[in-house]
Amino acid sequence: MKLVGNEELAHGLKGRDFLALVDYTPEEIQYLINYAIELKRKNKAGEVYQPLRGKSLGMIFEKSSTRTRVSFEVGMYQLGGQALFLSKNDIQLGRGETVWDTAQTMSRYLDGIMIRTFGHKNVVELARGATVPVINGLTDLSHPCQALADYQTVLEHKGKLSGLKVAYVGDGNNMVHSLMMGAAKLGIHFSVASPEGYDPDPEVVELTRENAKKTGASLTLCRDPKEAVADADVVYTDVWASMGFEAEQQKRELAFASYQVNDELMKYAKKDYLFMHCLPAHRGEEVSAEVIDGAHSIVFDQAENRLHAQKAVMAAIM
Rank of each mutant, 00 (worst) to 15 (best):
G5P: 02
N6W: 09
N6Y: 11
E7H: 07
E7K: 07
E7W: 06
E7L: 06
E8R: 11
E8L: 14
E8Q: 12
E8T: 14
H11K: 10
G12S: 14
G12E: 15
G12W: 00
L13Q: 05
L13R: 06
L13W: 11
K14F: 07
K14E: 07
K14W: 03
G15D: 02
R16K: 15
R16W: 08
R16C: 12
F18Y: 12
F18K: 00
F18N: 05
L19N: 03
L19V: 05
A20H: 04
A20P: 00
A20W: 02
L21D: 04
D23N: 14
D23S: 09
D23V: 07
Y24I: 06
T25Q: 08
T25I: 11
T25S: 15
P26V: 04
E27I: 02
E28S: 10
E28Y: 04
I29Y: 08
Q30A: 12
Y31R: 08
L32S: 09
I33A: 02
I33L: 08
I33K: 07
N34H: 13
Y35F: 11
I37R: 13
I37V: 15
I37N: 12
E38C: 02
K40A: 09
K40S: 09
R41I: 07
R41G: 12
R41W: 01
K42M: 15
N43S: 14
A45W: 02
G46S: 13
G46M: 05
G46H: 12
V48K: 10
V48M: 13
V48F: 10
V48I: 14
V48L: 12
L52V: 05
L52D: 13
R53K: 13
R53E: 13
G54S: 01
G54Y: 10
G54N: 05
K55Q: 12
K55Y: 00
S56C: 06
L57S: 07
G58F: 00
G58A: 14
M59F: 10
M59D: 01
M59I: 04
I60K: 03
F61M: 02
F61R: 04
E62H: 11
E62N: 07
K63T: 06
K63V: 05
S64A: 14
S65F: 02
S65D: 02
T66P: 11
T66W: 12
T66V: 12
R67N: 09
R69Y: 15
R69C: 01
V70K: 03
V70Q: 00
V70R: 08
S71E: 05
S71H: 08
F72W: 09
V74I: 14
V74Q: 14
V74T: 15
M76E: 11
Y77D: 12
Y77I: 03
Q78Y: 04
Q78H: 11
L79K: 05
G80I: 01
G80N: 10
Q82N: 15
Q82E: 07
Q82W: 08
A83F: 08
A83L: 01
L84E: 10
L84P: 01
F85C: 04
F85K: 06
L86D: 05
L86P: 02
L86M: 13
S87K: 07
S87V: 05
S87L: 00
S87A: 08
S87D: 13
S87N: 01
